[in-house]
Design a protein around this nucleic acid. Structure first.
Length: 343
DNA sequence: AACGCGGGGTA
DNA sequence: TACCCAGCGTT
């Protein structure tokens, strides 16, 4: 499924993009390094995450885990703590697994080619391309949402980006544009253009370095690209949590790695019948996530028996927590908000 | 090939 | 409200 564009001057467009990047590219902390560890961390953090949202997480993460060994030797809990608020928590778990994987399978040295990098947990084709092009100058386009948007507009290409073949299709297109020996900068340039100029809404076509080449722009057609047929539709999820307290102590536990909020902390989801009499408040909160419309029923249970409180905790594997418990920082936002109002 | 997975920003 | 974001793993 190769792109059929015989006459376009691909390389010329690629060089214009690169020239723009040299002058107008963003000044980001991870642009100053070719340390594959740091590039890897940044690529994982910025999967499905905008730069403004994840930049402080990146800085804090590198400060706490400055190298591979530090990360591999850290506790999973602490890795998750530094991931707080980023979402898609599998990324943090896979990141930690991959650090151990590099220690074991690659003798502690970060793999230096696309195929080996692709073997790492949580690293797919995009991320392997980004790391290998930026750090090791491999000529592989790092096709992400920015590539889809920019390329589909420049060539007014209606190839459906929901199609699972879109990655290969736009990779072929990008490869034809990529200037020799500049794969890393080309990939970064495409990301910056997509983020700063060729935005999903209200793109700044009048100052775009590619506007003379952009077919969608020159035919007044920008709003029709990219073509995306499949939409994400959230499902409803109803949860019940009990905030079980005795004086200033309350109960939390770590989740399993199940369907949502993997390994983060939560409150009890059920209580014994005799606790029902100690429910003092009830509140229902609605919260929209990308994939879930959450309805959370919170019940506040204020016990007056230390013995009953502790027995319930021990028997059901809960942790007796207080406000200064570091684990609280690893709560999902939706639960943390409740906590802030009630403790 | 289709689906599940967070949280936050923008219009 | 709908859509999007430096995607990946599972089934």
């Amino acid at each position: 499924m190769k792109p059929k564009k015989q006459n376009a001057d691909f390389l010329h467009v690629g060089e214009k993009l690169l020239a723009w990047y040299e002058i107008s590219g963003r000044d980001l902390p991870f642009r100053k390094t070719k340390d594959p560890y740091k590039i890897w961390i940044c690529e994982i953090i910025f999967q499905q995450t905008r730069i403004e949202q994840g930049l402080n997480h990146y800085k804090n993460f590198i400060k706490r885990f400055p190298d591979l060994e530090t990360l591999a030797n850290a506790d999973t809990d602490e890795v998750l703590l530094y991931w707080k608020g980023l979402g898609y928590y599998s990324r943090a778990l896979n990141l930690h697994k991959a650090a151990k994987q590099i220690i074991e399978d690659f003798n502690g040295k970060f793999p230096e080619n696309y195929d080996d990098i692709l073997k790492l947990k949580g690293v797919g084709k995009y991320t392997a391309a980004a790391i290998s092009s930026i750090c090791f100058n491999e000529k592989i386009p790092a096709v992400d949402g920015n590539f889809y948007r920019v390329l589909s507009r420049v060539f007014a290409d209606d190839f459906d980006i929901s199609n699972s073949k879109a990655f290969n299709y736009f990779s072929e297109l990008a490869l034809m544009m990529m200037p020799k020996n500049e794969a890393g900068h080309f990939n970064e340039a495409m990301m910056d253009l997509g983020s700063e100029i060729c935005k999903p809404k209200n793109p700044k076509c009048e100052i775009c370095p590619l506007n003379k080449n952009c077919i969608a722009f020159n035919t007044g057609n920008i709003q029709n690209f990219p073509v995306k047929s499949k939409k994400v539709k959230p499902t409803d999820l109803e949860l019940t949590y009990y905030f079980v307290e005795f004086k200033d102590r309350f109960l939390i536990r770590q989740r399993n790695d199940g369907f949502i909020w993997k390994k983060l902390y939560e409150f009890p989801t059920e209580i014994p019948d005799e606790f029902e009499n100690y429910i003092t408040h009830q509140k229902t909160v609605n919260h929209k996530l990308t994939h879930k419309n959450l309805t959370i029923h919170f019940y506040k249970v204020s016990l007056n028996s230390k013995k009953g409180f502790e027995e319930f905790a021990v028997k059901n594997g809960f942790r007796i927590s207080s406000q200064d418990d570091a684990a609280l920082k690893s709560f999902p936002k939706s639960l943390e908000n409740y906590l802030a109002e009630n403790v």
